[in-house]
Amino acid sequence: MSVWDKLFGGTSPVELMIQHGLIVERASDLLPILWRKYIAGEDFSDIAKEIYDLESQADAIKLEIRKILHRGFLYRFEKHDIIEYIRVQDRIVDLIEDTAKIMGLNYVELPEEASKKMENLIDCIENMMDVLKKALKELRNVLESDFARREVGKERQLVEEMAQLESKIDDAVYDFGKWLYAQKNTMNPVDIMFLRNLVLTISHIADATENVADKINSMLG
């Protein structure tokens, strides 16, 4: 075995972190389609299957990262930071999968006003995930530039953008929740519980994404 083989640990864990993030983002792209199909009462099993497949791919990368983090190796980031990062990022795709599963449990016909509120919430989530995608791509520049101040600055700006979107999502969740509880005298209580569960799961996607953003921020030092 040549010294070069021994020196490097094969695939870089940071590159796998980025690949994992891009899969998560692809899954998030399916959320608006999923919602549109759900609200139109159409079959969305194909979209749900696509999300489950992406979740499996993300899981495989998560396992690979844990496998390649060898003892005695020096990484760009601390090993526990990499493991923690991938754990919080993987939570996003798990929640997207949960959202698809929850939607498959029950169908509730919503008035246009509520449907729009939900659509707005999902769009905000998608926007936030688009920023995450940009942040992951920028991370490559941060590494390539050896943590140049201006690249780190750009990365922190994207992290800040995600935090702002998260607070916007909180508002959208509150808005939908207010509408939902206003239906207590007219809507089936099971449907209220179902929608509450659904909206909370979707809002957790934003929380998890903000956790990823925080993790990126702390890893930048």
Binding site: V3, L7, F8, H70, D146
Partner: peptide
């Protein structure tokens, strides 16, 4: 010497993963 040089760049966070065991 190659090992030393690679570790030097590794300590400078220049490469993704370097084997300190060497």
């Amino acid at each position: 010497t190659v090992v030393g040089s690679v570790l030097g760049v590794g300590f400078a966070r220049g490469v993704g993963s370097v084997n300190l065991g060497l």
